[in-house]
Simulated scan of single mutants.
Amino acid sequence: MDLPDSVLALDGNTLLPTVLKEDVEAVQICGGPAGLEAELQQLKDLSRVNHEMLIQTEEQLQKEATEDAQFRNQFGTRWTRPQSSTLTKNLQDRLNRFAANLKQAAESDALIDRSVREHSALMSILDSRPIESALPSLSRPIMSLDASEDSIVGALKQSLRQLDTLGAQRAGLEDMLKEMKRKDNILPKLMATAGSHEDLFRKEISKCDHICEEIAKNLGDQEQILMHIQAQNDEFAAIFNFEDYKGKIISSLSYSSFWVHTPANIFGFSTSSLPDDPIFDLSVSREKTYKQIEAAIAKYREIKENINDGIVSREME
């Protein structure tokens, strides 16, 4: 029945896990995907400066070699200075390595730039502030004929709380049965009795009758509440155009098929007592959205690390 996720989605109440939200905020503090463009430009500016330095140095060495050749032609054997190629060999070797590094850096820059372009759609979700605003939300009807939306939502929430309460009560009753079983050692009674063992067993088992009756009543009450929830949920889905919301969720998921179930309890109820929808499970879709955000964060960090490495290497050259 997509509960309680459909109720949580109403008016943007979908919440991100704390760790994921903190990761997104850390990305945004660093400038987010939009800030990568400025860092890419810084990388390009440093590359341009280094390339200009390479050209200037090459020109200086060429000028020195030309002057050396001119003086040798002019003075002949009287020009005893070592040849330019000998004097500048170490400089030329370093310059060649510098040129090779710049070529490799240019290729790396092209890969980074392409990665930013290819993954801009994936990472764009990280520029949403707050990040929850990027998640599809279940909107209230634009027009209301009888203003009954709040009462419908309130009744559904109340039923979900009752369902959760019954689940907690039943868990307590089951714990009581386990405790009775642990404490009740029937072996000495079996050894001491001279009568029918079956009578003894029936007598011992009867101690649990009141708990079993309460569990049976609990299950009956749960069945009734589930019937109410089904009817309330049908009304809720019709009024809040839930099918359209499902479509938004499906269209927003394009990067992940992995999910991990995380119950939501913002309104004081969980999903432990609700049957699963075999066709569409909002908790699955919510987790897929989280995985999409995680993938965007991972790609952003990868690109940013590559840019930072490029900037550091150029500043050291």
Rank of each mutant, 00 (worst) to 15 (best):
L145G: 01
N73G: 12
S254R: 15
P4M: 03
I112R: 01
E132F: 01
S273W: 12
T66G: 03
K291H: 09
R314Y: 14
K44V: 10
I29L: 08
Q158R: 14
M176I: 13
P82S: 02
D2I: 13
P82H: 02
D199T: 15
I125A: 08
E58V: 05
L87S: 06
Q232R: 04
E25F: 05
N50R: 13
G310I: 03
D309I: 06
G76E: 07
N218G: 13
Q162H: 10
F280L: 12
E243R: 06
G31E: 01
E214I: 06
L156T: 11
K299N: 04
L226R: 02
G172V: 04
S144E: 09
K183S: 08
N308E: 15
G31L: 04
D11F: 09
L200T: 04
I211S: 04
D276H: 14
S254V: 10
I211N: 07
I307K: 00
S285T: 06
L43C: 05
F98M: 06
I250A: 03
A9W: 07
S151Y: 00
N241Y: 07
E39G: 00
L163H: 04
Q70N: 14
T57A: 06
A105H: 15
I229Q: 03
A69D: 09
A100L: 12
L138M: 02
R170P: 07
S252D: 07
Y245N: 00
E132H: 01
P33E: 00
F71S: 05
Q104N: 14
S270C: 04
L219P: 05
P263E: 03
Q292E: 08
L61S: 02
D23F: 00
S84F: 07
V153G: 05
D150E: 07
D234V: 06
L200D: 05
K304D: 14
Q230P: 07
E132W: 00
N13S: 10
L138F: 02
A295H: 03
R140K: 10
D221R: 10
I293A: 03
D146E: 11
L20K: 01
S206G: 01
S251R: 12
Q162P: 05
S108W: 10
V284S: 01
I215E: 03
Q169I: 13
A99D: 12
L16W: 00
L91F: 12
A99I: 06
D150F: 01
R301P: 10
I205L: 14
Q92E: 15
T57L: 11
N265C: 08
Q169C: 12
I152S: 02
S285A: 15
Y245S: 00
Q292W: 00
E58T: 07
Q70H: 12
N308A: 08
L274K: 04
A38K: 15
R72Y: 07
I142S: 15
F240G: 04
I152E: 00
D109Y: 10
T18S: 11
A237M: 08
D234C: 06
F240V: 01
Y255I: 11
D184V: 08
P82G: 05
Q42P: 06
R182Y: 08
P275D: 00
R170W: 00
E179I: 07
L200A: 06
L61M: 11
S256Y: 13
I311M: 01
E223D: 11
A26M: 00
E64R: 14
D127G: 05
K299L: 02
L122T: 02
L253R: 13
A134R: 10
D68N: 15
Q292V: 05
L102F: 05
